[in-house]
Design a protein around this nucleic acid. Structure first.
Lengths: 283, 283
DNA sequence: GGCAACGATACCTTCCAGGTATTGATCCGG
DNA sequence: CCGGATCAATACCTGGAAGGTATCGTTGCC
């Protein structure tokens, strides 16, 4: 199977429309039809059910959509990492680390400082991104290591080392009645009148149905809390980012949040290994 | 990047010889040279340093060798899983489970029985293979789920659930002086006169240097122990496979062996999910 | 029933993958 | 120091496949 065929199939499977898929790929529709037919013949498997009005995925087609995306990601990662490895080493980012913008500044700073002090340390670029994006960046080879937070982020398919665990707090508008408490339980905050928990986007960018405002990142969320439109359950370390309008109260029975350092399983880079070792020593 | 280019590059990188690589690929040498040149131009990176006598990998080339192999595995897995999904469901293996031939028969039997009793269970094919092969089968899409044993097997790049842990025993020829002991420590058995620990092959099939006989699987190993040519440290559960010529004594300070069930991170299969759930309930 | 939408087919053109023959560089034995 | 052997690169040719345009056949819909 060639990546060209995979790209074509994924486009059709996502659009479920040969014309639009062809347009997206920048080719005419007939060659696209033909390529998909060849692919089906070669695999000995129908991938799409087409009437002259609708296109739907067969069972085999859904499998190839999922597996094919993963394979394309892997190819893209190989290409990107190779390109990076070929850049002149002066000034090239030796390592790209990705983490959530909302993550603990302290842990990250400690890690970067400690690593920089290691013999043989290379320059580290830090990418801050919204929740859920880190895994994609790591899979696509845009980053070498990530700081993830279980159970929010999935560590699917990566090597990981745990760096630490912390409890969670509920973030409330300053002056809210609950802020006088030394601690609360989950039951105290689900269904607080006027302060629903927010909804985060699914990996595909859509929001699950239900009450609560839609948020895209942590800054947005804190803004909404300050406005009295939501409350939030967040790791303790976010307290460092709270300003006067916000208050935090520990939630005793909220799940512990584990910070892990994650990297692609076949990484052969000495820099990644050094950084991970530094991180685990920090613990 | 096309998979054809990747396959060609990997062949050259492994052979470090254009002629042999071309032969292995079943093409002539000139088109191979040209394809690699195109690839290098497109990546903007030298992958190979060639004098007219020797070929060596550049830094970027080593990166592409590792990443490219992973990408090719992913493509192959996509292809194989799609083909499987297209087979007529009557009699088709719904699930392929791979485990070491030496693994506990009991756990596997319990798991298969419990899963078969689930509503919606599909037929499960079991592949037994030598140590170290499971990860490859899983990565290449030849299997859907594996039973691995930490710390022997790496769980690199898979989702896992722990199923249980066990201690280890030393397996000795019956009648060996140590067999009268109720337990031993590692120090008692490293350097037993005439009974060295065996050497297992590396992933590439070669053996590390050193003393001790080379073994390829557990049956070989037990044979060697029975012959009085080696001793072995193995998980407790292997006792079920010992016959009269062999004896086992617990090793108190040997690392615990954890049995885990592992599956590819993007598996969307309900059957895999059901099997994993069954396995964790068994625990 | 006619029209619009949409995938498949037919047919042509271009380009590239692959083959053969050869060159050019380097190592090595004498 | 020379001649042959080795090995990658170059030159050139050919067939097939990828892509384009025009058109057909089916189907849903007003």
């Amino acid at each position: 199977m060639e990546t060209r065929e995979l790209r074509y199939f994924v486009a059709v499977a996502e659009e479920l429309h040969f014309g639009r898929a062809a347009q997206r790929l920048g080719i005419a529709q007939p060659p696209l039809s033909r390529t998909i037919q060849q692919l089906e013949r070669r695999l000995g498997a129908a991938l799409l059910d087409r009437t002259s009005r609708t296109v739907t995925l067969t069972e085999a087609g859904s499998v190839l959509l999922v597996e094919g995306r993963a394979a394309l990601d892997a190819v893209e990662a190989a290409e990107r990492r190779t390109r990076r490895a070929a850049l002149p080493s002066t000034g090239r980012p030796g390592l790209v680390l990705v983490t959530k913008a909302s993550a603990s500044r302290e842990l990250l700073a400690n890690l970067l400082d400690a690593y920089a002090a290691e013999p043989g340390a290379v320059p580290v670029d830090v990418i801050l991104c919204g929740p859920g994006e880190q895994e994609r960046l790591l899979r696509e080879g845009r980053a070498d290591v990530a700081l993830l937070h279980r159970p929010f982020d999935s560590t699917a398919g990566f090597h990981t080392e745990e760096l630490g665990a912390e409890g969670q707090v509920v973030v409330l508008p300053a002056g809210h009645p609950l802020t006088v408490r030394t601690h609360v339980h989950m039951a105290d905050i689900t269904g607080l009148p006027g302060l629903p928990l927010p909804r985060w986007p699914d990996p595909d960018g859509t929001y699950p149905p239900g009450p609560g405002p839609q948020v895209r990142d942590h800054a947005q969320l804190l803004q909404l809390v300050a406005l009295g439109r939501a409350c939030a359950v967040s790791p303790e370390s976010c307290r460092a980012q709270l300003h006067g309008d916000l208050a935090a109260v520990p939630v005793l029975d909220a799940p512990k949040v584990t910070t892990v350092i994650a990297w692609p399983p076949h990484s052969r880079s000495r820099a990644v290994a050094d950084l991970v070792r530094t991180a685990t020593r920090l613990r």
